[in-house]
């Protein structure tokens, strides 16, 4: 079968983009290769490391597992879109303040994931670390570790990542 292409529209970091994509293109490849947004990283390309995490219609998602064509019409925010102009987001500020990275490769995914974690916590979502799932969870360190477990860091900056997320949650 020859390559199949499709026209899609995405809002990426606030800008409307009309694109023609190969149906096989992942959202991650589209962001990196077609739009030049190389913040989201291709770590494993199997949904196991979280380096490609973006906010898809406001929720954190692995861009490597999302087909671009299936997300026609979606609103995408990447690490490049977290700041308000020159003003960093609270999560970005907290990562700077707490030195929550070493090599930085996983950091864009960590930042987008942490942003999603704070939204989920604000909505009262429980996690596997929540003792009573019917109760409103407190975002303590165990909760943060569990909720951030989809983002791996080979440098092992986890201790400071937890501290940064805790700081941003305040």
């Amino acid at each position: 079968m020859p390559t199949v292409r499709a026209d899609i529209t995405l809002t990426v970091n606030g800008s409307l983009r009309r694109l023609t994509v190969d149906t096989r293109t992942s959202l991650l490849d589209l962001l990196r290769e077609d739009l030049g947004l190389t913040g989201a990283k291709k770590g494993c390309d199997h949904g196991q490391c979280g380096a490609c995490t973006v906010l898809l219609d406001g929720r954190r998602a692995n861009a490597c597992l999302a087909l671009a064509v299936a997300n026609d019409g979606a609103d995408v925010v990447t690490v490049e879109g977290l700041a308000d102009g020159e003003r960093l987001s609270p999560v970005q500020e907290a990562f700077l303040e707490k030195d929550a990275y070493q090599c930085g490769y996983c950091t864009p995914g960590q930042l987008c994931s942490a942003t999603g974690v704070l939204r989920e916590a604000a909505h009262g979502w429980p996690s596997a670390a929540t003792g009573d799932v019917a109760a409103e969870p407190e975002l303590d360190d165990d909760e943060i570790r569990e909720r951030m477990s989809g983002n791996l860091c080979r440098c092992g900056a986890y201790v400071n990542i937890v501290a940064a997320v805790r700081e941003a949650a305040r």
Binding site: G47, T53, R60, A66, V117, S127, A128, V133
Partner: peptide, 16 residues
Amino acid sequence: LSQALLSGASGQIRNQ
């Protein structure tokens, strides 16, 4: 049911 779902995958994958 909530507990089982929350023990699976990651926050990102559960959103998808």
